[in-house]
């Protein structure tokens, strides 16, 4: 059990972080904290990609100009994570703009209050 966790710590961490992010999305009533939960969930998945690319005793994916490259981390998952980080920030920005708009319309950021206000209309 301990050995399993030690050799696969990045994956175990990813599972728990996904759980924490999901909990924030479900349980926190504040919309800003829900969005932080989305971001947390995302970074957990980035960690998975980076951990898959890692190779023990290797180097960062900078290739030598001549000679055979030794063991190094795979560049492909890194590229997809870079793209995903940038798309993630775009998503966060749109979400936050919607939150600002919701606040100016309804005067609250709490989901339960928002539901009451909308039910009264």
């Amino acid at each position: 059990m301990i050995e399993l966790l030690a050799s696969r710590y990045a994956y175990a961490l990813m599972f728990v972080l996904m759980g924490v992010g999901m909990y924030m999305m479900i349980a926190n009533q504040n919309l800003v904290k829900k969005l932080i939960g989305v971001n947390l969930f995302q970074t957990a998945i980035f960690l998975f990609f980076v951990a898959v690319a890692y190779v023990e005793g290797g180097s960062a994916p900078i290739v030598p100009t001549e000679g055979a490259p030794g063991a190094m981390a795979s560049p492909l998952p890194h590229v997809i994570v870079l793209t995903a980080i940038v798309v993630g920030i775009a998503l966060t920005a749109v979400g936050l703009a919607l939150i600002v708009r919701i606040h100016s319309e309804y005067g609250t950021l709490r989901e339960d209050t928002l539901r009451e206000v909308r039910a009264d209309e």
Binding site: A10, N39, T43, F46, V50, A51, A53, Y54, V55, G58, S59, A60, P61, M72, A73, H78, V81, L82, I85, V86, I89
Partner: peptide
Amino acid sequence: FLLAPDVAMTEAAIG
């Protein structure tokens, strides 16, 4: 530490 310096820089700057 997982040999992804490019991702680390982007995460530090953007995240």
